[in-house]
């Protein structure tokens, strides 16, 4: 598996998309830091970018990479290597190369502006952590969807829809339900609904850390109140890890029966 990882990783990291992805984060965080002196505000702006963009890019690249490397996978399948190792290696190659572009794109400007010597260190690190976790989650989901759909258009469509669902539609439905049932106590419902959306969960994780209740919204406030800070953070990290493992588990289960 490590060998496949090594090759996928170097294949991807040398590609132009890694550079573009890095460049995007580098330029946006550089310019945000340059324009605004307030690091907390910059972190919130970057959070909003990351919460939308990292899942989207991981989804698109995951699906694309899986489909594009199909013939290559066939070549590898004819080698004396376990199926599981081939695809786990490819998954890690993709998600790690995306994560590295992302992390370097933020880390270098942060270092240049000396954020790591201010009191914003934990927030910056949380941001990097959450962005990486989201990349891992959504590339795993994308791999699973691509494996299950032989038809590329259908695979792409499903993956993009899923991203749209978690990034936009989910919150819409959630708000609609809150408005409709605003006479009932909805705290528990809000808490449970949070767990089923990794993007919301990531937002809570960053905001609990930033400790800005005004920006947290209803669910965040409830979450904060219910769990208290430390416990809330640990639980959201735990649930995020489950969000990585679950799609990988289903992916490996389908892989056993897959015909290439």
């Amino acid at each position: 598996m490590l060998k496949i990882f090594k090759y996928s990783f170097f294949d991807l990291i040398r590609g132009k998309w890694s550079l573009i992805y890095f460049g995007f984060f580098f330029i946006s965080s550089m310019s945000l830091l340059y324009i605004s002196g307030d690091v907390a505000k910059v972190i919130i702006s970057l959070m909003n970018i990351i919460l939308l963009l990292n899942p989207l890019i991981a989804t698109i690249f995951g699906v694309m990479y899986f489909y594009n490397s199909r013939e290559f996978s066939e070549l590898l399948l004819a080698q004396p290597i376990k199926r599981r190792d081939i695809f786990l290696g490819q998954y890690l190659g993709l998600s790690v190369s995306l994560s590295i572009s992302f992390i370097l794109g933020l880390l270098i400007p942060f270092a240049i502006f000396g954020i790591f010597s201010t009191n914003q260190v934990t927030n910056a690190v949380t941001l990097l952590f959450v962005g990486t976790i989201l990349t891992l989650i959504f590339s795993a989901i994308a791999f699973y969807i691509a494996l299950r759909n032989e038809n590329k258009i259908k695979g792409f469509g499903t993956a993009i829809f899923l991203w749209l669902f978690f990034a936009v539609i989910y919150d819409g439905i959630f708000l609609l339900l809150l408005m409709t049932f605003n006479e009932y106590p909805l705290e528990k419902f809000a808490l449970v609904s949070m767990i089923f959306n990794p993007i919301d969960l990531s937002r809570i994780l960053i905001l609990l850390n930033l400790d800005i209740s005004a920006l947290m919204g209803y669910t965040g406030a409830v979450f904060n109140q219910f769990f208290g800070n430390m416990l809330g953070i640990s639980i959201s990290i735990f649930v995020l890890l489950i969000w990585i493992v679950t799609p990988i588990f289903f992916f490996l289960r389908s892989l056993k029966k897959k015909d290439f």
């Binding site: 590609g15 066939e74 004819a78 080698q79």
Partner: peptide
């Protein structure tokens, strides 16, 4: 490891 296989279409990692 005992089988050599020549597939119909050849596509490899691009880079």
């Amino acid at each position: 490891k005992n089988i050599s296989y020549l597939p119909q279409i050849a596509r490899f990692p691009e880079n």
